[in-house]
Nucleic acid binder design. Structure first.
Length: 361
DNA sequence: TACTCGTGGAA
DNA sequence: TTTCCAAGAGT
């Protein structure tokens, strides 16, 4: 009887070593670590899903300056939320964030304090719910983000494919078993910090690792192989025609994309499949043939995404004397004709600009 | 279960 | 130039 009780009530070797390391080497100056209330931790955790810390920081700062609390976010228009998100990717996160803010504000403004209550929120899964409970409320709830997966897989020698269900079950069990009853917030930050700064995917610093003494992957000289990589097929190629339609005074015609799929809810130049004709596009947007001043096709270019290649065939349709100035920023920002400020984005500007310049140089 | 959803940095 | 993948979740 005594062994089980002792294991549950006292931090194990793993958690003890990790916490001691965290006190000396952990990250403590990240923006969401100051005033870590549920709202700030929630927003940061959503932004950090599949997104590196350095990319998130400026977005988090701008977001908090504009939406300091859940009521401010709930009162905003989706367009503005997406605008502050544009460039960060995975826009369903922003739509879910806005939807959840409205739900919470309508329910009085307080976040759920249970795992189940948090997981019921759109965009909040098991790991994000665990992170909110641990980081904002110091509750002993496990997380299993990419860092924790790597640390636990190596420490316990879990060598199955990192996305397989059996592997995830095993890793979640280890995550639960190591999470201490006290200092849950520090422990949660610690396992992420170890994974991010020492137990990295490539070139891990095992010589400085507080867990090295009992790390199974290190003992077996298999640190480089664990976690094993999921096998992938070849990327498919998708084709699209992009219509850049300009009208006076120097405005671009855009369409708001539906709230699903790629760039859902953002504004972009009309994109059609490869068989869409000029006549069909003009008809759809109410453009009379007589008003078309110029009609050109630019060379196609490829933009590679994580999961597919997109071969884009740019088309340019000018409706009056003034040519449209396409912003030469680092991103392809388009303009919502109903609003003064830029909203949304499409593919990076560079590739399309280079393509158009070959025609309009 | 397997697929979808983005972007920027690194190799 | 291409591939990989990082504080995952939804369907």
């Amino acid at each position: 009887m005594g062994i089980r009780t002792a294991a549950v009530n006292s931090p194990d070797w793993f958690a003890g070593k990790l916490l001691a390391w965290f006190d000396r080497h952990g990250r403590k100056g990240l923006p969401w670590q100051r005033n870590p209330n549920a709202y700030r931790v929630w927003v940061s955790e959503i932004m950090l899903q599949q997104t590196q810390v350095q990319a998130v920081i400026p977005y988090f700062e701008r977001f908090m300056a504009r939406f300091p609390d859940v009521q401010a976010l709930a009162a905003a228009q989706l367009d503005e939320v997406l605008h502050l998100w544009s460039g960060l990717g995975y826009y369903a996160r922003a739509r879910n964030l806005h939807r959840t803010a409205k739900l919470i504000a309508a329910a009085g403004g307080a976040f759920p304090t249970s795992q189940a209550g948090l997981e019921a929120l759109p965009g909040v899964g098991r790991s994000t719910a665990g992170a909110i409970l641990a980081l904002a409320m110091d509750q002993p709830t496990a997380i299993l983000d990419g860092n924790a997966k790597r640390v636990l897989a190596r420490f316990h020698g879990v060598d199955g494919p990192s996305n397989a269900a059996a592997t995830l079950r095993t890793l979640w069990a280890h995550a639960e078993a190591h999470t201490p009853q006290t200092r849950a917030a520090a422990y949660t930050q610690a396992i992420m910090d170890l994974g991010a700064t020492l137990c990295t995917r490539r070139g891990p610093g095992c010589s400085a690792c507080p867990l090295a003494e009992r790390c199974m992957a290190l003992a077996a000289n298999r640190v480089a192989e664990i976690p094993s990589r999921p096998q992938r097929g070849a990327k498919p190629v998708r084709k699209a025609r992009m219509y850049v339609i300009s009208a006076p005074p120097g405005a671009c015609l855009l369409e708001r994309r539906p709230n699903f799929g790629v760039w859902g809810g953002l504004w972009s130049p009309p994109q059609r499949n490869a068989d869409c004709s000029w006549e069909a596009v003009c008809a759809e947007f109410g453009i009379r043939a007589a008003t078309v001043a110029e009609r050109r096709t630019a060379p196609a270019f490829r933009h590679s995404f994580t999961h597919f290649h997109l071969d884009i065939e740019p088309h340019y349709l000018r409706l009056a004397e003034q040519p449209t100035a396409i912003g030469d920023g680092d991103r392809f920002i388009w303009y919502n004709l109903d609003r003064p400020q830029p909203v949304g984005l499409s593919v990076p500007a560079g590739a399309l600009l280079a393509s158009l310049k070959e025609v309009f140089a």
